[in-house]
Every structure is written in C-alpha cells, then in structure tokens.
Design a protein around this nucleic acid. Structure first.
Lengths: 222, 222
DNA sequence: CGTTGCGTTGATCTCTATCAAAAAAGGTGG
DNA sequence: CCACCTTTTTTGATAGAGATCAACGCAACG
C-alpha cells in the first residue's frame, strides 16, 4: 500500500497538489493493528491522528463505573481523532480496532508545522470538510423526501445517458442491491418500477431502462 | 452590546490577542432580527457567516413540495454557516430566527484574510467542522432508523443527564421544533411521547422528562 | 433434475402523515 | 386581573405508502 496515493484520495486532502501531498506524507507512517488492539487511550497526549485505510475502529469512553460507551465507529477513508489535534492536547476518548485494521498515522507536530508554513493548506482542508458537509445535507434531504416514486425517478434520471437520441439508464447493480441503495426492499422497488412501466413512462430491455419522455418522468421526482 | 468583547469570549476567537480581535472586529457588524425573520436563504451567495449572541436560530431546508425540515438549532456563542464560506460560495440551507435574536455578522472576505494571517484560527474552524460532521453522521443514523419510537427513545437517552440519582432529559426546544428535528410532525411526536408515558417509561414535569428505568426505554431504541 | 437465489405479484397489516377540532398555554390591551 | 386572541399541544378519525409474509416463475448451476 502506498500512503501517498491513499492520502491523495481522502476527502480531507484530495485537493492537495502533488508537492503538498509529498510534504504531508513525510509526517506519516503506516500502523497495522489486530482486532481488539488499542490505538490510543483517553487522557493521553494527542501526538497524532489517524485515517482508517481498512478495517474498522471504535471510539469509546469508559464511564466512572467501568462500563464502556461506544461513541463512533469509523471505517475506511474516515479520519480519527483529528478534532483532538485541532483543539486540544489530549485524546478525549479511547480507540481500539474492531477488526484487523490498518491506519495512516499523521503526527501532530508534522501536521501543525505544515499548516503554519502553508496556510493555503488549511483552506483546502476546510473546503474538503465543507464539501463533505454538503454531501451529508444532500443525503439527509434524500432520506427526508421519502416517496418511493420520487426517489426512483430521480435515480433513473440522474444515472441516465443519451444514446442515439434516446435517454436510457443502464442498471449497473442487481435490483436487489438497487432497492437497498434507494432505501427500500426488492418488492417495493419492483412495484414502483412496474408502476412506471404501466404508465408508459419507461420501458425495460435487458437491464436497460429506456425513458421516452424524461420531462414527464421528472414530474414524479418531486 | 460591544461586539469586540463578545468576540473575545467566543470559542472561535477567545485566544486572540487584543490586536487580533481589533482586526477581526473591523470586519463585523451587528444584526438584530425578530422572531421568524429570515437570516439567509439556501442558494444565495454566502457573503458572511454569523455568531449567535442571543436568541436561537434554526437551519432548515425546504423539500420540493414545500415542507421544511430542521437540520440544526443554534444558540448563543455558536457559529452559524461558517461551513459555507470556504467552497461553493452559496448557503446550503436556510436560516430563520426562532426567537428575537442578535447575531454578529462576519464578512467572508474579512474572515478569509484573517485566516491567511493567523493559521491557528483555521485549526479551530477545522475542529468545529469535524464536530459538525459527526453530528450529521449521527443525524443520518437517526433518520435511517425509521421507527418513531426508536428515534424518540434514542433522543431522550442521548440528551439525558443524571440529577440526584434520576435520569432526566430537559427539553430545550419547543415540542414543535423537536418534532422537526426528529423528522416528524407535532401530532406524531405528541402521540409517541404519550405512549411512553402510558407505558410508564417516562414521566413529564414542566418540560423535563424523567426516565425511571433507562434500560427499559433503551429496548425501544432499536 | 433438484436446489438455490432473484424478481415479480398478491394479500395484509403497521406506521405515520393528514385533516379536523378541542384543550392548554402565552401573550396583549384594557 | 380579566377578556381576547394567537400559538402550541393534544386527541380523534381516516387514508395512503410501504413493509411484511407468502407464493410462484425463472434462470443458473451442480
């Protein structure tokens, strides 16, 4: 695994230039942990933060009476404990691996030096955060607009292309998976698609949906 | 009210020197709004962000069919829309005052200049981003759990504190607002809470929910 | 062939939004 | 303090969307 190219694709650092990514990579190392292994503990000095490459880690706190509370579970691509680096000196919670995992470790000092030296970097990181937040807002919107017909219509239109004059959507996933992606179950998916077919809004041929009149279908997407 | 001294005590700026605070204050102005008044709207150019001085504001989105759902409620000391000013230039959601409120308005330009000059400031902003991101993840998890009883039970438990031996949840928002935050309408909220009361899982006194047996209530949160 | 998994169709049931209206809680002005 | 009005909260009845349960056709595959 190449740390450099991994970092270049994380949401935090994706807009870094090659040179900036090089500089950042210099402050990193790879950490492999086995299931159950401790990554850091509450109260210890926060000397680094991490980005999960593979596996899953759990952030938890111990209550006074010794019980543990899971705060978060982080998977591939997600930064871990970066808030501790940004605003305090100690880890506010503990972290262990839920499965065998590998992480990129980014040292606090190296990271802070970099930011102080190249203030544009922090703008890029913030922009990354900002985009990520917008994605989440969009996702929340999807979930709150809960009508199946809208969701399916929107999906078909957003994933359609024009091929020799016809608007078509190639279904790249099985219908079972699609149902799940759209937040429903296969039965409901099937019925909704059947409804569109019956209304002559779409026709289906060999896993390809043809949309004769996109504008008409669009009426259903809200 | 003195903007300068208020800013000096906010989370974002409390570690500023007097001189830095002066510079910042130069880019700000005070904005007073009455209950219900619009502060900014989705899609408009993000020319500034705000910090709540007093009152409460709500961040929300309108779905295509005109219904609104609340993303956040912000109170005194909290920054609002600071995420919007780094990338796409437009507000991703709208904001109105829930009560008469006063805000400090900080212009985008002035603030960006300041960040370039004082990189430590960006660390604080990034820390805020990181926390906000977690809130969204939690919110999405909330919404995908589609049963109202689970959502309310989870909310009550997550916002409860132990006071002289009793687990209680102080409702800090009106029930109408709470409904919106939980992704439902007041009627359903009221009924669900009534159900919990009838099952003796909770009692209510003056906007405070008492949870006699948190474990029992927890059974409903999944 | 039988088995297994996917996709479709049908019947039913649960949850919750909607519509309607009453009750409770806050103001506001006299 | 009271009458009046507005807003919030609660309760009731209804309807619609979608999940659930069940069954069947169909293709892939050993």
């Amino acid at each position: 695994m190449d740390i450099r190219s991994f970092l270049a694709h994380t949401f935090l650092f994706h807009s870094f230039t090659d040179k900036e990514t090089d500089l950042l990579t210099a402050s990193t190392s790879l950490k492999k942990v086995s299931k159950g292994e401790q990554i850091f503990s509450e109260g210890l000095e926060a000397t680094a933060f991490f980005i999960v490459v593979s596996g899953k880690v759990k952030i938890y706190k111990l209550s006074p009476d010794g019980k543990e509370y899971t705060l978060h579970i982080h998977g591939p691509g997600e930064p871990v404990a970066e808030a501790a680096i940004f605003d305090s000196m100690t880890y506010p919670a503990s972290c262990t691996a839920l499965e065998d995992a590998t992480l990129v470790r980014i040292s606090r000092e190296g990271f802070l030096d970099l930011i102080k030296k190249y203030p544009e970097l922090s703008l890029k990181i913030m922009s990354g955060y900002s985009k990520r937040l917008r994605q989440f807002v969009a996702k929340i919107e999807e979930l709150t607009v809960k009508d199946m017909k809208s969701r399916l219509a929107r999906y078909l239109l957003e994933n359609s292309v024009v091929e020799n004059g016809k608007t078509v959507c190639h279904l790249t996933h099985s219908k079972k998976e699609l149902s799940s992606l759209l937040g429903t179950i296969p039965e409901t998916f099937s019925r909704t698609l059947a409804f569109f077919k019956q209304q002559k809004l779409v026709t289906e041929n060999d896993n390809t949906i043809v949309i004769p009149d996109p504008k008409k279908l669009k009426l259903f997407s809200d």
